[in-house]
Amino acid sequence: MRTAAVIGTGLIGTSAALALSARGITVHLRDADPDAARTAASLGAGTVEEPEGPVDLAIIAVPPAMIATVLADCQRQNLARWYTDVASVKAGPRRDIAALGCDTVHYIGSHPMAGAERTGPLAARADLFEGRTWVLTPTPETDTDTLNAALELVALCGAVPVVMDAAAHDRAVALVSHTPQLLASLVAARLEHAEENAVRLAGPGIRDTTRIAGSNPLMWVEILSANAGMVADILEELAADLDGTVAGLRALQAADEAKREQGATAVEDVLRRGNAGRARIPGKHGAPPTRYETVVVAIGDQPGELARLFAEAGRVGVNIEDVLIEHSTGQQVGLVQLMVAPSAAGVLTAALQERGWRVRSDR
């Protein structure tokens, strides 16, 4: 691949353009909003000049409802040898593409499993897709050269390719992406009119749960509209679980001991099923989930403190597998949770304490 076109210079389109440009690919940028394309170009994502002839690959990064129309326009213009889109749903756009009679031999659907709460070209990063799954959904007509072009795109962006059926992809993202977005928003909505004293008690649990609730509502309406049925099916199942949990919690308040026991069993069942589901989420580098131990360190809010802490771990040969930071409300101090291999927790704890850090190991 030597040349590419990106149609739609939002977060995903501009990030892909930045990654390709960094690899020496000449990228031509288009957007319905010329200012967005010029902004992306100013960031080094490519050029707003039109290509002199067909590029190797056109990447269509527009909302799902617009994929087919944009693809048809690009193919009429002979913009590229091969085409892909990066929409977060695949079955609906594929039906629209078939209805418009687009060339599906030189087209393949795709979806990089990456994103951020912020949108637009200014939120883009060349490393956005590093190590992330990138789903490819070829049509029955997609030829080998088109698939190879998409695989090259994925490789250039540092992602990991996975080939799936379009409908299976949509069922999967309804469960692991679209429904969590709505649930995060529903939980965060409870905070809108909450008392200030309650909000001030917010800790890492509520922050983690509601992080993606900061996403762009209009963008998510477009995504959910394209996968509404599958998301609604999952929400119905969740609603049944919620009803059972509410009934269990009410029973815990009953005077009758037998009812209280039934309520406790119902609530425990939901929590245990949650444990089982959480355990199935792949761990580091896609490996089976690994149980780490947590070393909690109090750290001051000064420049260089976090780097010093990581350097201390490196000096004793401990690899930090994951990290979380909890900030204390109204104080210039935080708690850093370092996830390490069980065999390393004691070594790291002792070494940090010896060097004057306030530390504990959550075994």
Rank of each mutant, 00 (worst) to 15 (best):
I67K: 05
E49H: 10
P63C: 09
V55R: 05
L79G: 03
G46Q: 05
I59V: 10
E49C: 06
A65K: 11
I59A: 04
T84P: 08
P64R: 00
V86F: 02
D73A: 15
I97N: 06
E49V: 05
T69N: 12
R95K: 15
Q75G: 09
Y83K: 07
D56C: 12
R95L: 13
A99M: 06
G46V: 12
P112N: 07
T104W: 14
A58D: 00
I97Y: 02
A65C: 04
V48F: 11
A87P: 00
E50S: 13
P63I: 11
H106K: 10
V70F: 08
P54I: 02
P93L: 04
N78C: 11
A58H: 06
I60L: 15
I67H: 04
D85L: 01
A80Q: 03
C102Q: 01
L71A: 08
A80I: 02
I59G: 04
W82V: 00
A87V: 01
A98H: 07
A61K: 01
P93A: 04
A45D: 04
Q75E: 07
I60A: 09
D103P: 03
I59L: 11
A58P: 02
D73N: 14
N78K: 12
Q77E: 13
H111N: 12
R94K: 06
E52Q: 14
T69H: 13
L57T: 06
M66Q: 15
I108F: 01
L57I: 09
P51A: 02
G101E: 08
R94T: 08
I59K: 09
T104I: 07
V70P: 03
V70G: 01
V89K: 04
